[in-house]
Write a protein that binds this DNA or RNA. Structure first.
Lengths: 340, 340
DNA sequence: TGCGTAAATGCAAGCGCTTACATTAACCCC
DNA sequence: GGGGTTAATGTAAGCGCTTGCATTTACGCA
């Protein structure tokens, strides 16, 4: 039983087992280098004393921590939760611990968190999106901390990314919408400032409009934080226009669900009076009525692949590879086919 | 600009500023003890070199880290996300960093995570629920790490808790259900083994049954992990019984939403054919149709209070106080009043 | 038995920081 | 102007661990 007044150290263990601190350390870090008999004695002492290595000391002496840090914009949303869960599972299976912090979509807080995690010895970092102050990348490079950007895919190879192309995914969905005969299109987007994913989704829609020879400039876009209530409010605003849209494409499912509620509150039925689309394909999208047409993102797979890629960067000190995952359009009840 | 090959240390800064390392350290930790002129010089050197303190070294030399660790059962569920968000906000406002890990509802993983967080110098820990291996409490006590249990309230004072009484909250809801004339009651619970909240909720229902002179032993309970699909499956099972229940009370909203879907899939309408209740009052509960009757838990408030309480324990080295928050029953469409 | 080699273990130098204590500088007052 | 105070800064001893190198031990073979 541990004494409540002092935490045992390597020294204590060494003394108890009658060996040097080096041997104890080796028992812990490369057991094969210690003969079994000695090892047993040491392990017994460790057990008896309830010894746990002091992490700070360990980090300082060695350089590895087997800790991976992840900073996500928010925990208050299932978008990141699912991917992070598999990310964590994979890390755990490989002997790493995941530490998560959230930035509330604020670059400055994200930066603080990055520093905090690095300071705490993270061997590698998972970040969402790729757009951030170059200074922070310099900081990380100076410390040779591998960084993997996820939830995005960036083919230009400036940095390793494991994710999907937000722009082309949204474009694919928009093409469908247009193919269904929709011409009066509006969008409820997340805040694009400082959020490359949100910006890319808007861009994807614009591209599809341009392809379809529709007036991309006339596109009505409302930007609002990703919250259900905001989606409802935005829909109300959009539907009160002189010529309300026939479809409202939302930056994510949370906004879409909000929009759906907004429509219901206005007495509009979906998709008869107005169609709604989302993005992400979180559970929410299939739970509401009608179910929401959205872009399916392979979150779980992304989490797993991201973990593999990041560990690879950490262990092999490799530059890292990018991997693009495919999204697919999920056609469901909230989008009406105007041709029929 | 930082040299990509070496990370500057206190020594480098000291040399650059022409002072001792002690002075640099003081500039960082108690600036008022350094005369302004010197301080400016030091700060300039820090800036120029892009210096950041090495955390491991700092932890080892000092004892504080201004880090709080939290271990939640899962991130993949809004139940903890919301409370954690305010917890984090409050911590941030007070100058602390939050590190989160998740245990996948597995005691053993939770234990690993506790050790990981403690090893990384967490000044205090937020844990969900109070039921766990006494050994882990010994471990924490030996290291004098303050621990606050949340999402539960334990009046017996064996340990500080900031949360609510799961049992009485569920009992209150069950009383309503009974008052509405329901007699054939079934429950879909989360896995109670190793989850004191889930167990308390079942117990609360049983109490209410006993009060109402209903046969608590005959209560049909299905235990299943908190996932939507599981809720749907469990409902199906329950409704296929010879005498199906008139109401299915669920251990949380996730299960309730699943049950709702299950009912729809079976062609049953809620609440005409069967009533459903939830617990937690997450957003999901108000988004589905009909909206789910549930127990409202003041997550945000709980997060904030928990942060205050924990910081208090950390800073004043106090034993900590418990705080009970009130839940309220939210009557909504999914529960039918059989008397009308 | 003695020597060589390899395996097991010990020694001790850091890792980068904080802080008690020592030293120096600055200033005040009689 | 010397002695006493106080403020500012420097010195150096750890904090607990890992690891390169030195030393010891064990063992095989001639």
């Amino acid at each position: 039983m541990a004494d409540a007044s002092t935490v045992p150290t390597l020294d204590d263990v060494a003394r108890a087992a009658g060996v040097s601190t080096a041997t104890v350390s080796r028992c812990l870090n490369s057991p094969e280098r210690v003969v079994e008999q000695t090892r047993n004695r040491v392990m017994a002492a460790i057990e008896a004393l309830g010894y746990t290595p002091n992490f700070g000391a360990r980090v300082m002496a060695a350089k590895r921590t087997f800790t991976i840090g992840a900073i996500i914009p928010t925990m208050d949303n299932a978008i990141f939760a699912r991917g992070l869960q598999t990310f964590q599972e994979e890390l755990h299976a490989r002997g790493y611990t995941l530490l998560v912090a959230s930035s509330a979509y604020q670059p400055q807080i994200e930066e603080e968190q990055i520093r905090a995690l690095v300071a705490r010895g993270a061997d590698g970092l998972l970040l969402i999106g790729h757009d951030r102050d170059p200074a922070i990348y310099d900081y990380l490079r100076a410390r040779s901390i591998p960084v993997l950007a996820s939830w995005v895919y960036r083919p230009d190879g400036t940095q390793p990314t494991v994710g999907f192309d937000n722009r082309s995914a949204m474009r694919a969905l928009a093409r469908q919408v247009i193919a269904f005969g929709h011409r009066r299109i509006a969008m409820i987007s997340g805040i694009t400032d400082g959020n490359d994913r949100a910006a890319a989704r808007v861009a994807g829609l614009r591209e599809a409009l341009a392809e379809g020879a529709l007036d991309a400039d006339a596109l009505r876009v409302i930007e609002t934080p990703y919250e259900i209530d905001n989606g409802a409010a935005a829909l109300r605003t959009l539907m009160q226009a002189e010529t309300p849209p026939s479809v409202i494409m939302c930056g994510n499912d949370v906004l879409a669900v909000g929009a759906l509620r907004g429509a219901r509150e206005m007495g509009l039925s979906v998709p008869e009076d107005v169609s709604i689309t989302g993005f992400d394909d979180i559970e929410l999208a299939r739970i509401v009525t009608p179910q929401i047409t959205t872009v399916h993102v392979p979150h779980r797979d992304m989490g797993r692949r991201a973990a593999e890629a990041l560990i690879d960067m950490v262990e092999k000190r490799s530059a890292g590879v990018s991997l693009e995952l495919e999204c697919s359009v999920q056609m469901r009840g909230s989008l009406r086919d105007l041709r029929t």
